[in-house]
Simulated scan of single mutants.
Amino acid sequence: MAKKVLIVYAHQSAGSFSAAAKDAALEVLTAQGCMVEVSDLYAMKFKATATAEDITGEIKNAEHFRYAEETKSAWEAGKLSADITEEQCKLMAADLIIFQFPMYWFTVPAIMKGWIDRVLTLGFAYSQEKRYTQGIFKDKRAMLSFTTGSHESMFSANGINGDMNVTLWPLQNGILHYCGFQVLAPQIFWAPSHVPSEARSTMLEVWRTRLQGLLGEEPLSFTPMDCFDGEKGFQLKPEVHEKHANKEFGLTVGIHLGKRLPPNNQMKAGV
């Protein structure tokens, strides 16, 4: 059966490197028999703000509006706004979601953050019981593909911007893995606006080559949810902590046990 891919794309210009990366993914994956759909957020004029307008019908508590609870009830009742429902349908149909964007201020652009805030609603994308390795989307894959404004050296452990692995932890663990996605290693295009055209062409060729085998890649590793004690504030279980007591590195970038961060934990599978 053909795999279904959703590309959530955020760039204002069709002449951008991000657009070229999106087009390459569309072309290569389609050639492999995948059914690829693109949500072009700027072209769609996608609303970035999470407000009461996202609900059709009455609000339960207008005086103290709580977005997560209100949208959960609206989702259960089929009363979310049409733009959210349409994106949720696309996501449900997809086997792989690629987020294609230029990194703004060490994270995703506002319009893409709005997609995340509004589409990944409580109940639909996660719940108290269904998150992380037990998450709702545990049978789906997701990945970040983005450009930076700084060179790779600046995002190193000794660089002025800090370790890119640390920058990626909130996005890949706190959003994608939190919803259960198997997270593929990110595709990072380092400072394409500051390199010669030949280097940009090489970046795209590397991406196109990776796309050939993307669907068969191993995902990044995260600490399984059953390693934590839910009755004790979801702290790492003593036996797991003890098992790693004498190891040089922590488990992950975020769950580091006060040890050295495992190198490339958020950038390469199997490291």
Rank of each mutant, 00 (worst) to 15 (best):
M1C: 14
A2V: 13
A2T: 15
K3F: 00
A10D: 12
S13T: 11
S13M: 11
S13L: 13
S16V: 10
S18Y: 00
S18N: 15
A19D: 10
A19N: 13
A25F: 08
C34T: 12
M35W: 13
E37Q: 03
S39D: 12
L41R: 02
K45V: 12
F46Q: 00
F46V: 03
K47L: 15
K47C: 15
A48C: 14
A50D: 06
A52F: 01
E53H: 10
D54G: 07
T56Y: 10
E58V: 05
N61R: 14
E63V: 14
A68V: 14
K72I: 08
S73F: 09
G78P: 09
L80G: 04
I84Q: 10
E86H: 10
E87Q: 02
K90I: 03
A94D: 08
D95L: 01
D95G: 01
Q100S: 00
Q100P: 03
F101Y: 00
P102K: 02
I111Y: 14
K113V: 05
K113Q: 05
I116P: 08
T121G: 06
S127P: 09
Y132D: 11
Q134F: 12
G135N: 04
F137Q: 07
F137L: 09
K140N: 09
A142L: 05
A142P: 06
M143Y: 00
L144N: 10
L144T: 07
S145I: 01
T147E: 08
H151L: 10
E152D: 06
M154S: 10
F155R: 04
F155P: 06
S156N: 05
S156R: 01
S156M: 02
I160Y: 07
I160W: 08
N161A: 01
M164C: 03
I175T: 15
L176A: 02
G180S: 09
L184D: 11
Q187A: 14
S193Y: 13
P196C: 07
E198P: 00
M203H: 09
L204S: 07
R208T: 07
R208G: 01
R210I: 04
L211D: 03
L215A: 03
L215H: 03
P219V: 02
F222G: 06
F228M: 04
F228N: 04
D229N: 15
K232F: 09
F234K: 12
Q235D: 09
P238N: 05
E239Y: 07
H241G: 09
N246K: 15
E248L: 14
F249L: 13
G250C: 04
L251T: 06
V253L: 06
L257F: 10
K259L: 14
P263C: 06
Q266S: 07
M267R: 14
K268S: 12
A269I: 06
V271D: 11
